[in-house]
Amino acid sequence: MISRRYLVRRILLLVTVMWTAASINFFIPKLSPRDPIRERLMLAATQGGRNQTGLEAMVEAYNQQFGLDQPLWKQYLTAMLKVVRFDYGYSISQYPRTVNSIIKDALPWTLGLGLMSILIAFVIGTLLGALLGWPRCPRWLRIFVPASMLTSAVPAFVLGFLLIYLFAFQLKIFPLSGAYSRTATPEWSLEFALDIAKHAFLPACALVLFQLGGQALQMRSLMVMTVGEDYITFAEAKGLRPRRIFARYAVRNAMLPQVTGLVMSLGTFVFSTVLVETLFAYPGLGGLINGSIQVLDYNLLYGITMILVFAVCIATLIVDLIYPLLDPRIRYEKG
């Protein structure tokens, strides 16, 4: 059971984490000596072959538009209010588009790629690790132990490079980059869905392989410790079927630390997803983050980072609240 007092404490902790992340996210870009408005206007004037007469007036006007002419404390308060309202204003690099509209276009791609990858890696890695840690495990499965060690030690973007070289350059089975073919028309059809799946296969494989090895090794170690517990010996002495002991006694008791490890790795997985999306030119949040850093688009960078922090915090809260379902011994209540 979950008490109201505990739920309030967890929500207050989530708000504190969000406020801290928002503050850090606000002040770090301000440390840069670059002026994104001036750089963008000078680049536009140079590419258009125009002189730079009136540049200072334009810079001042754009600074007023984006609130960059205000004192730092006023900019900070405005940024905090934007976090509460989930409204991050206009993008500096893609003006007059709003940050919310840009994120809205890119977020479904990241959610589809990231969520599917982490769920597949967690399910397969947990099952594989449980089998590897079970004494009656077939010998041929043990070849996955060194393979899991290898994939867990290699970063996701390096795995992405290897997959691109093997399946895109050499075998030419999958496309190099993008989310769908340039000649394809976005529509609700089976052909377009298959085209999306074909483009997402390599980045998804890079993320799954990166996460799967660690999940399998962690579950294997948890199963080895769980198998040595007294209740497992007692269940075997009672003559229970090995399948029941494996599923209901060993795996179920090893799942709680496994879920905890998954939550702790969410931050690393989000960072890996961003790098893999950038590598494959996938139209998700990864490419937006890379572009916003290059042009120092404060508002866009601020909005994307806060969305990612909020997603990790919410996922952590949800997993924390479902712990009692995984282990009935856990009670979030007074007394």
Rank of each mutant, 00 (worst) to 15 (best):
A130M: 15
R38H: 00
W109Y: 10
V83I: 13
L72I: 15
P29H: 07
F86I: 05
P71G: 12
F66Y: 15
L132R: 12
D69C: 03
Y76V: 10
A44K: 14
G125P: 00
S23R: 05
I28E: 09
Y95C: 05
T20Y: 04
L107D: 00
R9G: 13
I120A: 14
W19L: 15
T53F: 02
L131D: 14
G112K: 08
S117I: 06
M18V: 12
D35Q: 01
N63D: 09
P71K: 10
A44T: 12
R97Q: 10
K104W: 10
I124Y: 00
T78E: 08
D87R: 03
G114Q: 14
I37M: 01
P108E: 00
P71A: 15
I103R: 15
N51C: 10
L31A: 00
F26T: 02
R9V: 10
E60H: 12
D69L: 07
A21K: 14
Q47V: 02
V99K: 07
S91R: 05
F66N: 09
E56S: 15
T78C: 06
R40Y: 03
P36C: 01
W19E: 11
G129W: 08
R85Q: 13
G125C: 02
Q94C: 09
R38Q: 03
S117T: 07
L68D: 01
M80G: 09
L77G: 13
Y95W: 10
I102N: 02
V15E: 03
L31M: 09
Q52C: 05
K30R: 11
A45K: 04
R50P: 00
I103G: 14
T53R: 08
D69A: 04
G133M: 13
F122N: 13
V123N: 04
Y88T: 07
W109V: 02
A22V: 00
W134A: 05
F122G: 14
I37D: 02
A22P: 07
Q70P: 04
Q65G: 03
I37E: 00
A106E: 01
F86C: 01
L131V: 15
P96I: 07
T20M: 13
K104N: 10
L72G: 11
R10S: 04
S32G: 01
P33I: 02
F26E: 04
N25M: 12
Q70H: 15
A61S: 01
M18R: 00
D69R: 03
W134N: 06
T16R: 06
L128A: 08
T126A: 14
G89F: 06
L113S: 14
W73Y: 12
Q65R: 15
Y88A: 09
L119N: 07
G112M: 04
G54Y: 11
T110I: 04
A22Q: 10
L132Q: 06
T16V: 13
Y76L: 12
G129L: 01
S93G: 12
D105Q: 11
T98G: 08
M58F: 11
F86G: 01
G89W: 09
K82E: 08
I92R: 07
S91H: 04
V8G: 03
